[in-house]
Amino acid sequence: MDDRSHGDGHRPGGGPGDAALLLLADSRLPAGGHAHSGGAEEAVRLGTITDAGDLARFLRGRLATAGLVTAALAAAACELARTGHHPGREEDLATLWRQLDAEADARTASPAQREAGRTQGRLLLRTARRMWPSPALDTLGVAVPEGAHHPVVLGAAAAAAGCVPYQAALAAAYTAVTGPATAAVRLLGLDPVTVHRLLADLAPALNDAAHAACASLIDSVVTDDADPLAVDPCGDDRRRPPGGIGPDGDDATSSPEPGSAPGAGPCRGAGWPALPGHAAPALDLLAEGHLKNAMKLFVS
């Protein structure tokens, strides 16, 4: 892929990815996104969303939590797909895809949300492989046969379509709020223009979330000067895992280099553990409650 028009690949700007980004974020993309309300249906049922004001607060909170996390995962996936594929190293790449998918798992405590995320991921992968055939999407499908999480697939699809990590993050943040917004229009009979006004008001926050997601990818892991085990007088190595069974894979020290030359293997994925994991306890409760509602219109 041609990097020249994108600078470091993390800033917005004209490029071949722009049109692809529109396709990827379009609600008409035949990948099943319209079937998910992202907790909005259950919130409407419970009466915590009754009008446009509630919906605005719901969307802002969703963007600051699940939206930021999916944006960061999508950016990481896009970066991996853009820089990770080298002939003969599919095995390494499959391991990395599984690792990134495990990072998504660890940030999704609710089993209902994991299931919804994997379902959406499977559908998107099927669509994206036909729209933008690429080795990275093939490898991802093989690496995570049960279906990778939606933001991971979204990032890989974005890369296949020619997008940079920033654009992948923006698409993820955008779909994190537009799905619930349109669902609320249908569930509450809200004025669609009023709801789109809410989305327009969120536009700066969407940009901020995508920037924050990319920044989290570049930032090296903050070294903790107060690590209490590091000052252990017994002189233990702080990286020793429990029981002394090997190197601590969790303890990342080097930052990934987005857009760096191929072959930067060893630090690949080193920054993933530090990606944002902003939780939304109410969304977790909504997702699990929704699963038990026999009358539901939306899958999530």
């Binding site: 969703r62 990072e103 798992d105 894979g249 994991g277 306890p281």
Partner: peptide, 24 residues
């Protein structure tokens, strides 16, 4: 000796925009 993340979670409290959100 290979690590697998079990749970990674951030909670932010005190942000007026998100504290009272029905999503948070």
């Amino acid at each position: 000796g290979a690590g697998r993340p079990l749970l990674r979670q951030d909670l932010v409290v005190g942000d007026g925009h998100t504290d009272g959100s029905p999503a948070v």
